[in-house]
Design a protein around this nucleic acid. Structure first.
Lengths: 193, 193
DNA sequence: GTCTATAATATGATAGAC
DNA sequence: GTCTATCATATTATAGAC
């Protein structure tokens, strides 16, 4: 029974994430969410007493846990920096369905209200990604400052490729970016670049 | 009278753009828009008979014209490729207020409806940017294929830096990215990158 | 061109039955 | 835990005066 419930929760979070990814926070109405999850509004409020804001919070938390398990843990695995960077690039591809999906961190950073209720969680998630990525760059020989800049470049490349791919209706930019991730993170560079 | 009207229209579009940039399409209610522009709802409908969708369309068109005049024309100016790339980087900074603003092309590509009403204009604007940027890369000696990839890299860097800067609440990533634009577009590269 | 007033609908949220 | 029915408010949109 507990196992079944757990699976249902997983599926629920998966569908909620899809709705917020597709339509953004304000664009995801309770009617849309109800249809996407198969739960009527009162059932949603039973599960999320604080309503839509809590739904988005828990989706963000759930996504953060996925990232910790499937992106950040591999970055600390006992493998060469390049191998870890390559595995990271692969996992990024499955997180965003090879560029077809948008990033929750991008979409949930836009709301009606002046101060975004999710800003803290979004900031925190980017920070964890940045720390783990820069550690790989350091393991590959980069000094701390360069390592942080490389991590930033990788995050920029991912977010930018997702925006551009959605903007032009083609995943080609995302797939090209994905191949570049290992070099951005661990390849040696010329001094003048 | 005509001149005064023109200025008012400019200011109106400027404020509308700011609202959509800050809150996204669905997050920008007519109440918010009314407050931001100083026009009551019936006045807005007098100016935009098809309502909010037309407002966003005209804001996008207006932004596209700004881009043509202030970003793309300089890319074709009689100057060295590097000088043109540097001017472009400067103008990108003022377009996004040095990283404080978000990109309309990103925010307006998210709506409630399944097929985004602005997809065509967004796609078209990215296309014009890409064409003009790649021409600069070609003028700097890149072959057509490499030039297109460099233009794509620049667009990815801009969009990604804006997303990351908003996500972490700091314009530092945008400002660092801005300095890299000229090299991304026109610097020679090692073969193995 | 702009406004007050108002309508029609959508949206977030709850009461209460099962 | 889920539902039907309902509420209060927000939202898009319009009528009609000035």
């Amino acid at each position: 029974m507990a196992a079944t419930k757990k699976i249902e929760d997983e599926e629920l979070m998966r569908r909620l994430a899809l709705v917020f990814q597709s339509h953004g926070y304000e664009g995801a109405s309770l009617a849309t969410i109800s249809q996407a999850t198969g739960l009527k509004k009162p059932s949603l409020y039973h599960r999320f007493p604080r309503g839509k804001e809590q739904m988005a919070e828990e989706v963000l938390r759930h996504a953060g846990e996925w990232i910790d398990r499937n992106l950040l843990d591999p970055l600390r695995a006992p493998a060469s920096p390049r191998q870890r960077a390559e595995l990271f690039a692969t996992r990024i591809g499955s997180l965003y369905h090879r560029g077809k999906d948008s990033c929750l961190l991008n979409l949930l950073s836009v709301t009606k209200s002046e101060d975004n209720p999710f800003a803290g969680m979004i900031h925190e998630t980017f920070r964890r990604l940045s720390r783990s990525l820069s550690q790989v760059a350091r393991d590959a020989g980069a000094d701390p400052k360069d390592a942080r800049l490389r991590a930033e470049e990788v995050l920029i490349a991912i977010q930018g490729a997702l925006v551009l791919s959605r903007g032009i209706g083609s995943t080609a930019p995302f797939r090209r970016m994905q191949k570049k991730i290992p070099d951005l993170l661990v390849a040696s560079r010329r001094e003048d670049r």
